[in-house]
């Protein structure tokens, strides 16, 4: 619905067709977002450059690039490093959650997620404004690296 005013463009990357359409329909109808889709990690990465979405909703287990690799690739390029990312996966273990968040995802959602919760999560991810992200990133890159290690103060006498 490109002719209607939308709240932004969301890219949905998931290899399962039923789920991809569900997420797309949910975001379109309940969140009034414009949605583009890709069914694997490599097409998904291309789509991030082609469509410049405001937010990505990505699965982890996918052919080609998996979701974690995709997130790392996006975070590694300054052009896409600031795009909010929501991981939507069936991987439930803490380890997977940690890996997903460490790769740079803003939200880690475990399936099944109800439609309204999904919209809320996307909204939350988007709420971290682009400017803030950009500044945070820049601050991190530009932070001065200390020249030498500051020695600890001597132990107080016992």
């Amino acid at each position: 619905m490109p002719d209607l005013p939308t709240n932004g463009t969301i890219l949905v990357v998931d290899d399962n067709e039923d789920l991809r359409i569900l997420v797309a329909e949910t975001l379109k109808r309940l969140g009034k977002y414009h949605v583009v889709m890709a069914d694997n990690g490599i097409d998904g990465l291309q789509a991030f450059y082609d469509h410049r979405p405001d937010c990505g909703v990505i699965d982890i287990k996918m052919p080609g690039l998996d979701g974690v690799q995709l997130a790392r690739a996006l975070r590694g390029d300054p052009e896409t490093a600031a795009t909010p990312l929501v991981i939507l996966t069936a991987l439930v273990q803490d380890r997977d959650r940690f890996i997903g968040l460490a790769a740079g995802a803003d939200q880690y959602l475990v399936k099944p997620v109800r439609p309204l919760d999904l919209v809320a999560a996307v909204r939350q991810a988007l709420a971290v404004s682009m400017v803030e992200r950009d500044q945070a990133l820049r601050a991190l890159i530009d932070a001065p690296i200390p020249d030498e290690v500051t020695p600890l103060p001597p132990n107080p006498p016992a």
Binding site: L22, V23, R29, L30, P112, P115
Partner: peptide
């Protein structure tokens, strides 16, 4: 199980909501 569960619940709820 999680993927079809989400699909089933999701489509039904979306149907109710819209």
């Amino acid at each position: 199980l999680r993927t079809p569960a989400m699909a089933m619940q999701g489509y039904l709820e979306l149907l109710q909501l819209t």
